[in-house]
Design a protein around this nucleic acid. Structure first.
Length: 539
RNA sequence: GCGGGUGUAGCUCAAUGGUAGAGCAAUAGCCUUCCAAGCUAAAGACGAGGGUUCGAUUCCCUUCACCCGCUCCA
């Protein structure tokens, strides 16, 4: 598998699909550029998504599996938004983790998730830590203290505990701290802040009052525009708002080619529906999104849908399924997320109304600060929806199919990579590398060749190229042998090659060569545009 | 951020304390009548910075990037 990924990476570089960002300066970890073929491929992925989800959606009839007809519309919000948005969404608190490292065990812990308690014993006073809480944490700290002092369980009464289990955040000096996996004192580094959101400053003066963040997801731009869209576009619940765009996460460890990038592009839908029908819509969107990938060629066993376990669900979610792909760089049996389809309830709209929410039992309540007021106040705007038909007012529930455009592009690339054996000019088998893209995704739709560069063939081929060019991204080539030109197009994933030969001079037909089957059929010169269109749309 | 490995042409690889060769690809031309043929020409690299040395691609240090394992992944 690792070998295959190397081949894919090598091909993408060689043929100009993907380059490392800032390569001539040594590169920048977690950032990638799309080259001439890559930009076409990624554009096609995004255009397929937008067309299939938004512009070609028929809002007059319920699609198969949908509870009822629904509307789809789009949005393009800014990357930098009001900082309060990220406080209410929960990203601010979650993304500002302080971490401590253990020099001895080489492990890393979240500062606020390490607990411990002070103990006096054998003339020493030190802080014994654990990652557990409650009575489990007390048991563990007792065992660890005894072990540290080389005492037996019967010596437990000689330990003088000073106070209950408290967070490591209450301890200023770590010199007398026994780390969760350490055998000696003082192995923990001071807490260091990990900013998982990119910070920037709005305005020429870079004071903290101007601090803002590059969005870590596009979704919040949709939620904060919910009322604008409802008030301006005549959409009625149930409806969805789609958005594509860049997002930024300062990943600790970018890895695996473009899979975990720090700058990446999302394709997100927020689908607003009535609370009582949300489970049906959740099912619909899971299935609809899974089918989208299979229709574009991820049809094999390498694609799967995985429902999250209850304990895996985010704090706001009451159902999430991941659409996953077995990328070649992953160990056998492991899958990487392409898209998460989440039932988010009314968490987001309510957060932007009331303030940041936390789960309390089965309910979501506004998180309060030390002063008893909301920790992160919301906008105070009413984001509820009045349904004229049922005469009901409610806060819509949300189904969120959130896809990674770069991850989808990478999966389509990996899936497309093929090798087979084709006899060459002398009849010897030769390895052929080709990208078996779905025609809709292929960067170049067709290539036009004169079989040889004489007898007027180039002139006819150029005419065909010019006839096709206004409709499709096509490529003209007359250099070298025709076999070499075919091979180059195979490597770029071009599904069709059109060749002008000597028969063309006699009967005005050309050969249409299929990338996958290598079959050639004759088509009239005047029918080329229609033939390409027919093959691309499958009609 | 830690540990291990790697870094020479677009790709795959050589050699060397005295500034580097090849195959394939790519470019130009000739030739070519269906799957990377052939001939000719020209072009192209020691990841970056610093140190040792008369001289460093080679030795040392730092840094950047990639791979593997930890850690992380809302």
């Amino acid at each position: 598998m690792a070998v295959e990924m190397d081949k894919v990476v090598s091909l993408t570089k060689r043929r100009g699909f993907l380059f490392q960002s800032s390569e001539i300066y040594g590169g920048l970890n977690g950032f990638w550029d799309y080259g001439p073929l890559g930009v076409e491929l990624k554009r096609n992925v995004k255009e397929c998504w937008w067309r299939d989800m938004v512009t070609s959606h028929d809002e007059l009839a319920a699609p198969p599996g949908a509870p009822m007809p629904y509307e789809m519309t789009g949005l393009d919000s800014t990357i930098i938004m009001h900082p309060q948005i990220w406080k209410c969404s929960g990203h601010y608190d979650l993304f500002h983790d302080f971490m401590v490292d253990c020099r001895e065990s080489k492990k890393r812990y979240r500062h606020d998730q390490v607990n411990g308690r002070w103990v006096d014993a054998r003339g020493q006073r030190f802080f014994v830590t654990t990652q557990l809480g409650g009575t489990e944490g007390e048991d563990e700290t007792q065992q660890r203290a005894l072990k540290f002092l080389n005492l037996r369980a019967k010596d437990a009464p000689s330990l003088a505990w000073d106070g209950p289990l408290v967070s490591l955040t209450t301890v200023a000096d770590f010199s007398q701290v026994l780390g969760p996996d350490a055998k000696t004192l003082g192995t923990l580094t001071p807490p260091r802040e990990f900013n998982l959101m990119f910070k920037t400053y709005v305005g020429a003066l870079s004071g903290e009052e101007g601090a803002a963040f590059l969005r870590p997801e596009t979704a919040q731009g949709i939620f904060v525009n919910f009322k604008n869209v409802v008030d301006s576009s005549r959409v009625r619940v149930p409806f969805g708002i789609a958005q594509m765009g860049k997002s930024f996460r300062n990943e600790i460890t970018p890895r695996n080619f473009t899979f975990r990038s720090r700058e990446f592009e999302q394709m997100e839908i927020e689908f607003f529906c009535q609370p009582q029908s949300s489970p049906e819509w959740y099912q619909y969107w899971r299935d609809r999104r899974y089918r989208w990938y299979t229709e574009l060629g991820l049809a094999g066993e390498r694609l799967r849908m995985r429902e999250h376990h209850a304990e895996e669900l985010s704090h706001y979610s009451c159902g999430t399924a991941d659409i996953e792909y077995a990328f070649p760089f992953l160990p056998p049996g492991e899958f990487g997320e392409l898209e998460g389809v989440a039932h988010r309830g009314d968490f987001d709209l309510r957060s932007h109304m009331e303030g940041k929410l936390v789960r309390q039992g089965n309910d979501l309540v506004v998180e309060l600060g030390p002063d008893g007021k909301p920790r992160h106040p919301g906008s105070g705007r009413d984001l509820s929806y009045f349904d004229d038909f049922t005469r009901e007012r409610f806060v819509p529930h949300v189904i969120e199919p959130s896809a990674g455009a770069d991850r989808a592009t990478l999966a389509f690339l990996c899936e497309a990579y093929q090798e087979d054996s084709v006899p060459d000019e002398k009849g010897e088998p030769r390895t052929r590398v080709y990208l078996k893209f779905h025609p809709r995704l292929a960067p170049i739709k067709a290539a036009v060749f004169p079989l040889v560069k004489k007898d007027g063939m180039p002139e006819i081929a150029v005419d065909i190229y010019r006839a096709l060019k206004p409709h499709f991204n096509v490529f003209y080539d007359e250099k070298g042998s025709v076999g070499r030109r075919y091979a180059r197009q195979d490597e770029a994933g071009t599904p069709y090659c059109i060749t002008v030969d000597s028969q063309t001079l006699a009967d005005q037909t050309v050969t249409f060569r299929d990338r996958d089957t290598l079959e050639q059929t004759r088509v009239r010169v005047d029918d080329c545009v229609e033939e390409v269109r027919r093959r691309l749309t499958g009609n």
